[in-house]
Design a binder for these strands. Structure first.
Lengths: 119, 119
DNA sequence: CCGTATCCTGTTCGATACTG
DNA sequence: CAGTATCGAACAGGATACGG
């Protein structure tokens, strides 16, 4: 128990292939977008829902819970009225920045290429 | 219709966010694994099916067709008996190597971390 | 060997309504 | 505001059988 990463995760549960291991944690569209939108910093639930766009409350809640269990996301509840709940990335979550960056870089280059092909 | 990358892809069809654009093309587990296994070079359909593991023929065929339509994969049919069909990455497909690498790197580091936590 | 067609299952997800 | 509960639609994906 060195630090607070993922709770009951054992090596046996993880695929042999590192790529598949990563996909197991962020292989879902919504998870990647949560990561993207929390990378700059803390956000409230409502902000997150809006910035992601097109996600239902139910699904967003479920994904945030999963990512919390994986040790990627931290949830902070403030005992106020009306209630305020803030989400942020853990160090482990922030360590995925290179992955996000590569996705963004490729997407940018691809969009440029498509735009150039059309005209 | 300038060249042979992606056929009817227009800028309007793509999400504003580059990350989402990338996800639109390889946001699926199987697509990423096809990419991983074709990155070293050409493979036959059967080889691919086996090396990916756990994918059904139907789904693999469908994903390969989609990726061909996106301009990521090339399909080469040899008129032999029994038939031989080989798949390989296009330059555009190979350009995704940095993305694959970042996924692999993170997965490797994560597995190491988990292993260290257990003992 | 590679691919298609059909059927059928489980899962994912959105919509809506309701609670602290 | 930030959930939870429930329902039903849509889709992904496996199994099987058949065709070129």
């Amino acid at each position: 128990m060195t630090e607070k990463t993922a709770l009951g995760v054992s090596s046996q549960d993880l695929p042999a292939c590192p790529v598949e291991t990563t996909l197991k944690l962020i292989g879902n569209k919504w998870e990647v977008l949560v990561l993207r939108d929390l990378m700059p910093g803390t956000k409230r639930f409502g902000e997150l829902k809006q910035s992601i766009g097109g996600v239902s409350q139910k699904v967003l809640t479920a994904k945030l819970r999963e990512m919390e269990a994986s040790g990627l996301v931290e949830r902070h509840v403030y005992a106020e009225v009306p209630p305020r709940v803030e989400y942020s990335l853990t160090p482990l979550g922030r360590s995925l920045k290179p992955v996000l960056d590569s996705l963004e870089q490729w997407g940018t280059a691809y969009k440029k290429k498509v735009a150039a092909t059309v005209r």
